[in-house]
Every structure is written in structure tokens, then in C-alpha cells.
Design a protein around this nucleic acid. Structure first.
Lengths: 210, 210, 210, 210
DNA sequence: AATGAATGAGCGTTCATTCAT
DNA sequence: AATGAATGAACGCTCATTCAT
């Protein structure tokens, strides 16, 4: 117990921190609260982490890792011609993100702060974009040159990644504000997303072929 | 100098608050700083506003008003068949939002905080969605029944409003992270947005006609 | 309305202040609250009263006046040999004080503050002691010399006035703490007071006669 | 100097707080002042105490403890038939209370505040009543049933404890208001208290015997 | 008699962080 | 690896009071 504590403790702190940040947000969660919730001394947190900010960084990084391994372990590049399978896959991604939705919201919120200079959001985005795009995004071999990589990046991020992640982060509040049901909202989003972003994918490809 | 302005003072406070919130974010801006910057006694701020939160609410509301009047004063429902004019209009909206981009970022950031329960973001969204859509969003005359209003709402918000406002809020940081130029990034976004969201508009309409 | 307001307003302020002081105590009641409750401008309170302290002083004085007129209007020096009538009269006094019990509690509380230098409590006491003693307290004619006036004063105040007023001020809390019923508590107090303080009155008189 | 005392520091804070509360009252003493007087960082006070109120509660409790140990260590139930020894004992108690008179005054003052809901005064009273009464108050052996315990409690508190503690708390001010000498005032009070409250004790007992 | 705006001082409380051990 | 004690700097907010009108 005294032995196992060493490495486990740090993880317990991280776990507790995630729960608290998710519940109250970053600023509203004090190091005291984290220490108390993790039943450790406050100073110990500063032994394991440089400061409060470092704590959330490690947390974000752990999400990055999770996303990364999720991406890699995916059945790559399955044929997905028909609409239904595309939508099915989309739902899968939403479900995956949903599991960490609160921390995602915190990450988005932090990324939008003017003081922020760490671009974890963009790093995260790069990863997730691969998730939606297989490796082909930056593996820009072949005929991608006619539509430069920059455009694809902007396209993937702002009309693909951002809508998805914002939907996951805001869904609950959206539903209670507009009186929609979560399931209906998800259906609607899948539909809307399929028609706009996903449709434009096909668009790109058809463009390429021309 | 600070003495005479009865109604002016409140506006000066709001103006200063906007500047500071935009520069440092909500939490990182103290009421003391606002008071100092506005050359006003701190207590006076609490004379004019219930609390710090109320201050930013009034600020957000002022944005809402601005957006509303912008919407109303627009040349309504111009014919926009050709791609170029559509893109031109889009750029206009981006420019409009750009003027308040920092406060928009604050608003997004605050809206994403888990504790938050004020749905100004959604209110703002409803307005801006009219801006992009004329009155036709809820003016569901005719045969819109086949595509329920909820879907359109979700579509407009998550694949229309959110990408735009996030682009405006994140553009600078995006550019410095990926080494893009602001102008090129804007071009790319306009292109991507036109191909995904705007294209799906047409899609909807063509659906209706069927 | 504009005419009547002048003098009435001050009284309304006093009335509101009494209610608030009674409900929350002196320190816990802000001038703002009083102004708001009285629907007057805060500065107007400072037009009518020198400061917050002056306000409560006037209030205490109004109680003094009330007590004074109550004393004077009493059927003086009735024969009260039998125990029952003595107890009956005592109950009457308790009822009288009960009407203003909360302000009495505030007065006691304020009097006990170390900073306090205004001896309204003692002034009030002098009056009320006459109430319990007819005029004979200081009208020390005859053979009072053997028991000096000072002793009588101390006796009246600390074993007569103080217990009564403290009982009135604390009764409710006493009852909820000890689980007594208010009526039973009053009965008990009357009994205890009759046996101790009132009995010692007789004692004094019998002493005198010896 | 302020660095080393781990458990001492908390006690120093309490000691300083007692002095300041005694001198200026509870509300008029700021946590800043306490910190400064104790040569301690203000935040440290909130490390040791939950809040300002908790501070005074601990202080009151320490008085309770003191009273309790004083009570226990007393030469129990000495025979005290003659008037003189009774008065002597009474003076002893007054002297004991005198040592903490200012905090007693604060306690009374706080107890009288309408917002207050902590019944430390009553707890303190229960203890002190044993002090004046040996164990016999609730030790109700034998034929006490004819005079129910409630009456005795009311009697002890309102005509015994309250007069004593109020006398201790108010004596100085009483003397300067009425121009009495402290010693004479104490003599007078002892006399008055002996004749009223103490005499009624005997009364009770004689009642019992009948 | 009455007001809205303004002030300065101070409040209790909390923060992230560091020290010695 | 882990702790209890301590710090300094702010924080949001409220106070009694005063100004010009």
C-alpha cells in the first residue's frame, strides 16, 4: 500500500482532477479541492506536477493518447459507399467522444481563452482528423496537389472536427434549451453533418477525379 | 472628468470591460482592473451592475443587439445563384463577426463552462442563423414540413454558425500554429464552408422541390 | 402626498429600520437595505439622520418614550398583597415588553458591545424600574437611609429588570433549545421571578419596618 | 519566530482573537487585525479555522472548558449555612467570571443577535448552573418531583446565571454611569443577589421539606 | 425634501504556491 | 513519496458616507 502508492497516487490525482475539472471547469476547481478529493496533501500535487496548468495539460495529453490509440486500432479504410454505413461510422465517433465530453468542453473552453498559448486543441484536432480520414490527410501523395493540403486541413478542422466536438460538448445544454430529445438531436446532427461535411468529402474526391 | 457622466459612465465601464475581457478572458480580468482602467471607483461598478457576471451578460446582450440590428438592416433575400456572390456575402459576415471576435471567443469559452447555465450562445445563435438565412428559417411556409424545423436548426447551428464563429475566434491562433497566412486561411475557410454548409443548403432546397 | 411625505417619511424610515434591525440585528442591516425597504433614496436617510448609529438611537429613544408613557398611564400603587395579583401584574409587564422584544434584544446586544459608550440601557432601566416600583425608588423619603439607594438600584436592575428583559429577549430560543413550551416557560419564569426578586422586595420592606 | 510553532500558532491566534474581540467586539474586529496582531498571514487563520465565526466559536468553547474544569475542581457541596460563607462563595464566582468578563460580554451580545442560532450561551449556562448548584440541579434525588426540573432550570438561569454574568459584563459601565465605586457595586450586587436568588434557593428547599 | 452617482476603505475569503521536515 | 504549516497577492463584494443637483 505504501509501495503501490507512489505511481498510483499520481494517477489517482489525475483521475480526480479530470472528474472535478469536468464537473466545475478549470478555473472553478481549486488545487485544494483536488487534494481533498484525492485524499492527498496539497503539496504532493506540486511534487507530481509543476503547477495547476501542468496538471490539465497532462490530462489533455492523456486524452490525446486515447484518441491516438483509438485511431490506430480502427478497422482502417473500410469501403463505405452507402450512406447508411457512413452515418453508422459517424455515430461511432460521436459515441467515442461522448465518453469524455465534459473534458472536451473544458479543453475547448480553455483553448478559446485569450491568454492561452498552448495549441493542444490543434494537436488534438490533427489526430482526430486522421481518425475521420484515415492516413490520407497528410499522406498527400498522388493527386492532392490540385487542392492544396491547407484547404483540406481547414476543411477538416472547421467543418468536420469542430462541429462534431462542439455538438458533443453542447448537446445536453442544446436539448434542454430547445426542448429536443438527445436522441432526436443526435439523429438530426448526424443527418446535418452527413449532408454538409461528409457530402463535401465526396465532393472533393469527385473534384480530384476531374 | 469621471464625475459628470451619469449614463456615460456605465457605458465607459462596459467598453473598458469588453476590452479587458477580450484581452485576458473573463476569469483573468478582475473587477479592480476594470475599475482602474475606467478611472472609476470599484464600488461604482457594483452600483451599476449586480455583479461581475451581470457585467459580462450586459456585454453579451449588447452584442446580441448589434447582431440583431445588423441582421435587420441587411439587404434581404437577394438573389444569390452564382457561387461568387455567395462567397462574397459570406466574407461580409466574417468581417462583421471579426470586429468582435475576441468577445465572441469569451462568449464561446464561457458557454462551454460546465457551471454555466445561461444560454446566450443559443440566443445569439438563433439571431445569427436568421442573419444567414433571412426569415425563412422559422418562416417555414409551404412544404418545409417534410424536413422538420429541428433538423434545420441543428444544421444551421452546428454546421453553419459554429464553424463560422469558431473560425473567427481561432483564426489568428490557427495561422500561427500552422504557419498559414490569415488571408489564405480565410480563403480556405470560405471555400470549405461554401462546399460543405452552403452546398448542403442547396441540397435542402433541391430536396424540397422533389 | 408631496406635502405629507416630509414628516411621514422620517417615521417610515424609522419603522422600516426597526423591522430590519429586529430581524437581522444592527450590524447585519445595511443602510442600503433600509433605504430600499422604505422606498427612499439612501441619501435621504442621511438627510434625516446624522448617521446609522443616530438612527438606532432615535429608535431606542422611541422605545424609552413608549415605556415612559406606559409607566405613567399605569394604575399606580394598587394594593397588591396577595401573590396572585402580583404575578398577574408581572405577566402584564412581560406582555408589554414582549411587543418589542426583538428591538430589546438588539438594544441589549448593542449595550454589551465593548465599543459602546451610550448608556441607553441604563436610562431605559431607570424608567422601567419605576414601572415596577412606582415612584418610590428614588423618592427615597423616610427611612430608606438604612438601606442606601445604591443597593436598591443595583437590586432593581440586576435582579429585577435584567432577568425580565433577558427572559423576554431569549424566551423563544430558550424554548427551542430546551424543548419547553413558551407558555410553560413563562409560567416558570413568573414563578421563579416571584420567588426570588419579588420575594426580596417584601424582604426589604420587612427589613425597613424592623 | 512565527515560523516554528505548529500547534502553538493556532493557540496564539485564539489568544489574540480573544483580546481583540474583547476589546472591540466581534463585528468590529477584522480578520486582518487578528492576523496582524498575531504576526501571522491572514490565510493561515483560514487554514486553522473554517471562518471568522468558527474562530469565536472555538473561543467560546474554550471558555466552556475552563468553566467546566473550574466546576469540577471545586470543593464540592460544602456546608454553607451561614450567610457570610454563602456571600464569600458568591464573590469567588464573580472573581472567576471577572477574568473573562469581556469575552462573556461578547458572548452575551452575540447570543442576543437575531441571526444567531448557536446556543452556546445555554450550554455555558448549563455548566455554570452546576457550578452554582453542585450536581444537585439535575441530580434530582428524592422529592424534587413536586417542583419540576424545568422550573429550577428557568430559575437558575434567569434569576441566577443571567444576573451574575450581566453584572460582571456591565459593572464597569454601570459604575461610570451611576458614579458608584466598583467595590461598593460588587458589595451591593452580592447583597441583592443573596437576598433574591440565593434566598429563593433556601425557599425552594424549605418548600421541599414541607 | 429628495435623488442618482460616486467614493474610499475595508470586508471575509480563496487562490496557487512554497517551506521545512 | 508525502506532509502540515505558512505565505502573499488578489479576489469579488459591501459598507457607511458624501457629492451635486
Amino acid at each position: 500500500m505504501a509501495r503501490t502508492g507512489s505511481d498510483t497516487t499520481k494517477k489517482r490525482i489525475l483521475a480526480v482532477a479530470e472528474k472535478l475539472f469536468a464537473a466545475r471547469g478549470f478555473d472553478a476547481t481549486s488545487v485544494d479541492q483536488i487534494a481533498r478529493s484525492a485524499s492527498v496533501n496539497k503539496a504532493l500535487i506540486y511534487y507530481h506536477f509543476k503547477n495547476k496548468h501542468d496538471l490539465i495539460l497532462e490530462l489533455f495529453r492523456s486524452i490525446l493518447d486515447e484518441v491516438a490509440s483509438h485511431t490506430e486500432s480502427r478497422p482502417e479504410a473500410q469501403v463505405r459507399d452507402d450512406d447508411e454505413s457512413v452515418r453508422q461510422e459517424l455515430r461511432g465517433e460521436i459515441d467515442f467522444l461522448q465518453r469524455r465530453k465534459r473534458v472536451l468542453a473544458v479543453m475547448l473552453s480553455e483553448a478559446l481563452k485569450s491568454s492561452q498559448r498552448d495549441d493542444l486543441l490543434f494537436q488534438c484536432a490533427e489526430l482526430v482528423m486522421q481518425l475521420e480520414h484515415g492516413g490520407e490527410l497528410k499522406g498527400d501523395g498522388g493527386d492532392v496537389r490540385d487542392r492544396p493540403a491547407q484547404l483540406r486541413l481547414v476543411h477538416e478542422f472547421f467543418t468536420g472536427f469542430i462541429p462534431m466536438v462542439m455538438f458533443v460538448a453542447l448537446r445536453d445544454r442544446w436539448c434542454s434549451y430547445f426542448g429536443h430529445s438527445p436522441d432526436q438531436a443526435t439523429d438530426d446532427f448526424v443527418e446535418a453533418f452527413a449532408r454538409s461535411h461528409l457530402a463535401s468529402q465526396t465532393d472533393f474526391e469527385s473534384t480530384k477525379k476531374r
